[in-house]
Design a binder for these strands. Sequence first.
DNA 1: ACCTGAACACCGTTCAAGT
DNA 2: ACCTGAACACCGTTCAAGT
Lengths: 231, 231
Amino acid sequence: MVAESTQERAPLSKERVLQAAVDLADEAGIEALTMRGLADRLGVEAMSLYYHVANKEAMLDGVVDMIVTEISEAADEAAPPSGGADWKTTMRNRILAAREVLLRHKWAPAVMETRTSVGPATLRYYDDLLRVFREGEFSYDLAHHAMHALGSRALGFTQELFDPADQETGDEDMEAEMAAMAEELPHLVEMLMEISHEGAETTLGWCDDQTEFEFGLDLLLDGLERLREPA
Amino acid sequence: MVAESTQERAPLSKERVLQAAVDLADEAGIEALTMRGLADRLGVEAMSLYYHVANKEAMLDGVVDMIVTEISEAADEAAPPSGGADWKTTMRNRILAAREVLLRHKWAPAVMETRTSVGPATLRYYDDLLRVFREGEFSYDLAHHAMHALGSRALGFTQELFDPADQETGDEDMEAEMAAMAEELPHLVEMLMEISHEGAETTLGWCDDQTEFEFGLDLLLDGLERLREPA
DNA sequence: ACCTGAACACCGTTCAAGT
DNA sequence: ACCTGAACACCGTTCAAGT
């Protein structure tokens, strides 16, 4: 009696492969997303995947397309184009919604950065952003600059200064380490001390990501608004 | 007679290993930077590298540190802190110099994004940026927001909309393809047509990277300037 | 049409051993 | 102190073959 036969299992499809890939990365991290690991999760041999995707790169392209589709849907739900709100509110809410999606798929930005071509979902998302600008009476020229200026933030990419788990030192010698750092990095240390005194956290994990994201986004959107209607 | 002996060859060192790694990536691309390939270039067995670096990740950490050191030096040469110029000019010229360095090491941003901890060179570079803000009479709070808002742009990262070689279609059916795209991506297509009519290039490789980089950078710096001196 | 088995070329890395 | 050889576990991928 064979344990798993083709009949007992839903047949593979490109969609099932890509969905499984997203789930695997969500649950076990991007380094777990190998062709062999993905096949395992689908109860199939590694080589079977090659019937549905050309190779690993094509698989990753598909995965990114799924994520961007999710971003697009979230953005449309939060603030559809032609939804009645002004361009800045619409753009702001769309991009904040995009960020929320990426918080659910923390591995995704790194994969997106490795893509060398733009998939259909991304093109569609950009087209929608452009539409919002146009409905806000931007010229195509300014809208074009705006897209570059937003950069990966348009897709919800967060800009972290120091990466999440940067704590390699025990809590004990925090004082001593600070003193040593203070000589070489005086401004960084002073900033740290000042901000930690007034705020919540005392360690290096002090930045409120949501606040910083909105600060940077608003800085750009406000600047664009001024360029749109010169003085 | 043995071809290559330890005596005939300069002995390895961490610095030589890292420099060779940078050179290899420059010449052959990041995918050529394997432990075995790196050893080859140094005329040594792969395992010898492990005497000088803990593992591949540590090697990449070191490589990033070298690049950021190069960025720091270029920034200092272009516009040293306390160099006499106002904060905005100094910051602008430093970041433009950083970008020039990354143009010489196109593979570097992708590697930098994969680092999970911040090296000494990066800390020093950030400390210097902070110093420039402070000399421009920013509060630490605003300077902190500013660093997040600049994000990876502070290190000279370019924000490309579509990646370099996105031309997978022959030149012939450009017209036909445009027509097909126009239905699904009306704004993108219209923008393309408008910009290509007035400008230089006619294809998808139309964006002047330098211009777009400066546009986004100035948008941020101008916005920060306004926040620094409220009305 | 869909999936598999065996095999290949290539990784990073270990460990014990050489000089 | 510095480097090596052999070996291991793991990749992505090919190709011819099975149902």
